[in-house]
Each structure stands twice: as C-alpha cells, then as structure tokens.
Nucleic acid binder design. Structure first.
Lengths: 208, 208
DNA sequence: ATGATACGTGACAAATCGTAACGTATATGG
DNA sequence: CCATATACGTTACGATTTGTCACGTATCAT
C-alpha cells in the first residue's frame, strides 16, 4: 500500500518540509492569467508552472489534473456578498447587477461559463456542482429580490416567482454569453436598459 | 509550388477517381453520434474514422481539422423553417418553441452550445459566425414574432422590441443550458409555462 | 542527527493531432 | 488500350500535451 496520493495539506503542519506558502497563490494566479489569455484548451500545465516559477510536479502535487487546477483557480475568486435591500424592486436589481457588470465582461467569467457548459454537455460530475455554486447562487439572488418585492406589494401575490426568476436570470446570462462582436452597445448600458424594462414588466404584473 | 491542399471537390467532376459518395455522410453521421456520446474533448479523429468505416487520412482530406469537421457535422443538420403566423403572440411563441423542445434537449444541441461558448471565450474567429448562424437566427425569429404582435396591437407601439427579444431569447436559452439534474420539471413543461408567463407579461405592456 | 516532506530537474509512457509515403482502386481523356 | 489524376486504406512518423517517476537537494519537526 502506497501513501495517500495527492493529499492537500496546505494548512496541516505534520513532519517534513512545509509547503512554500507563496506557491499556492502563485499557481492559482498564473492559472487565472493564462486562462483569461489563451483559454482552457491552450492552457498547458508547463506554462502554468513556468509562469508560477515552479516545477510541473509541484503543480500536480496540489491538483491531480488540469481540470481540478482550473476549477480551484476560478473558485478561489468567487465571493458572494448578498445584495443590499434598497427598498424597491428596480433598485434591488440595479444594485445586484450594475456593480458586477464589469466582472461579467471579464474573459475569466466567459472561460468559466464555457467550462461549465462543456461539463454540462458531457454530463460530467462537476456540471451540477459548478452550476449550483456559481449560476444557481446568482439566480437565487434574483429570486430573493423578487420575493422581497412581492412582500412589499410591488409584485402580485400570485406571481410565479420561480418562473420570473428564470426570466431575469436568463435575460442577464444571455447578455454575458453574447459575443463581443455581436453586441450593439456596451454590456453595462444594455444591462441598465434591460433592468428598466424588467422592472416595468414585473411591476405591471400586480394589476390583476 | 505544391497543389492546392485539402480542396473540397465533392461536386466537381475532374479527372481521377471520384470520391465515394456515401463516405461524406458516413463521416458526418459518425461525428454527430460520437459528439453526442462523448463530447468534443473525447471525440477523436481515429474513432470518427473507425465508426465511419474509413481511414483517418480520408477524414482529413475533407476537413482540415477536428474543429472544422465538428462544425460541418453540426451545420449540416441545421434547418430553419420560419415559424407560422398563428394570429396571436402566444400562439406564435408556442408554435416557434414547443415543436423544437425535444431538439433543444438533445445532447448535440448542448455540445454545440458548449463549443460556441468555448469559441466565444477564446475570441475565436468562429464564435461570431456560429452565433450569427445559430443563436442570432433563432433570436431574430422571436423578434419577428414580437414585431407581428406589435403590428396587431398586442404589443405597445412604443415597446422596445430589441430588448424584449433579448428577454425571450435569454429565458429560452437559459432553460436549455440548465443542467439536467438542476431541472425541477421537464424542459417541455417548463417551456410551456414560461411561454404563458411571457405572453402575459408582454401583453400587459400595451396598457399604457 | 533523523525522518519526513517539498521542491526542481530531467526523463518517461500514453494519447492525440496532423502529415507523409506507399500500394491499390477507379474515374477521365487520348 | 494506356496514361494521368485522384480517392482510398494502411502504416508510419513527428509534435504536443498529459500525468508519473526518480533523483538530488532543501527545509521543517522531533
């Protein structure tokens, strides 16, 4: 019986030489940079190691595969601060979306969504996890905004919040997926106009 | 100066042995089958050639790369019949979407969208072409439905059809992208409920 | 000091892509 | 019929990348 392979032991302090602390961040940063530059396909472990200034086996000691490395590099920068309650549906949507608009346009986001879609199409075990941790979480943020609006009376009490959430989430993600060359205006500008439209549409649902 | 490389000459009849006619379809069919089964990553030219019953160079004589082969295999099955004018916005949306719902759930559609997203993220030259030929065309179908509805008076004359089209297209594509395991109901059923919701929301816009 | 582990270097097998060299088969044109 | 040109299959090849391994050295706990 060999020893446990590829154990992640960054934080435990057993016997032996401890891992260089800066190396973990160097590897993840190099991965993110290269991912944004050349994409998942053309990202090679050799390049990651070279840019991080480490040897290739050092990368493999931390992550068993290229997929795991990239997944970890993307997950490490995901932070989800809950959107503030601005008091109105329209304000909540704007507060949720507009500050994130620049991030939505970042190459890394597109790369992540592409990986997610590939995993999804391949029915990989990662697909649902990625979806739940990234996309579904944002979708639920919209859902909470709609529930608050419903509690305020901005939305009809019999409105189907689940379906409406799909409308909002779908509209937003569609803007992110759209190729840059196929956009007629800036992502921020279009998102702002779409928010206004959605507010208007959602508000009208209460007149029943 | 060598001869022109990789010329596609399926239909021209020059001197020399003509290409086996069945081979073209065999290769594209094998590609589609394998693409749906294992995805783009794990699809290999060797497997394609084996399943098509031809040698590997025969595949390369027709398509210069794996990407070109897969692109051709997917493009070959795209046909866009215009949706009929049913006389109502809701009917048009149903007629446009429900017959295609089973196709939307097919693995090949997911694979194609995943490839499109990867190309997009890598800023590949194919991204905009794929988007225009596949996604944008469907989006425009929604746009035409909305324009017809506007002409009928079902939609406010000052409604922003371009933005509304994004709402409809985004809502639909979001359902397609959602992982199977993250779905709470069948794709057809949810699409049907979303269509009803969208009809209701869009119709209310005229009360201005 | 000893043992365990991390690190870098270098080498390695396996898979895959795309190309090339052959021999054979099948068309056109004389 | 014969020459030419091309398609096809088989086999082999180089290049790239992935992931592993062996080795020597460095660094920690005990």
């Amino acid at each position: 019986m060999g020893r446990a392979p590829q154990a992640l032991r960054s934080s435990q302090s057993g016997p032996g030489r401890p891992r260089e602390r800066h190396v973990d961040d160097d590897i993840l940063t190099a991965t993110r940079e290269l991912l944004a530059e050349v994409g998942f396909e053309r990202l090679t472990m050799t390049d990651v190691a070279a840019r991080a200034g480490v040897g290739r086996p050092t990368v493999y000691r931390r992550y068993p595969s290229k997929e795991a490395l990239v997944a970890a590099s993307v997950e490490a920068l995901r932070r989800d601060e809950p959107a503030p309650d601005t008091g109105t549906l329209c304000g909540d949507l704007r507060a949720e979306l507009l500050p994130r608009a620049p991030a939505f346009g970042h190459p890394l986001v597109l790369q992540f969504l592409a990986m997610l879609l590939v995993s999804n199409a391949e029915r990989s075990e990662f697909a649902e996890v990625y979806w739940r941790d990234a996309v579904a979480q944002r979708r639920d943020a919209f859902g909470e905004i709609l529930v608050r609006a419903q509690a305020r009376g901005e939305l009809a009490v019999d409105a189907d919040v689940d379906l409406l959430t799909d409308v909002v989430a779908g509209t937003v993600i569609y803007q992110i997926l759209r190729p840059v060359g196929a956009r007629t205006e800036s992502l921020e500008g279009r998102l702002e106009r779409l928010i206004a439209l959605l507010c208007s549409m959602l508000g009208r649902l209460e007149r029943d």
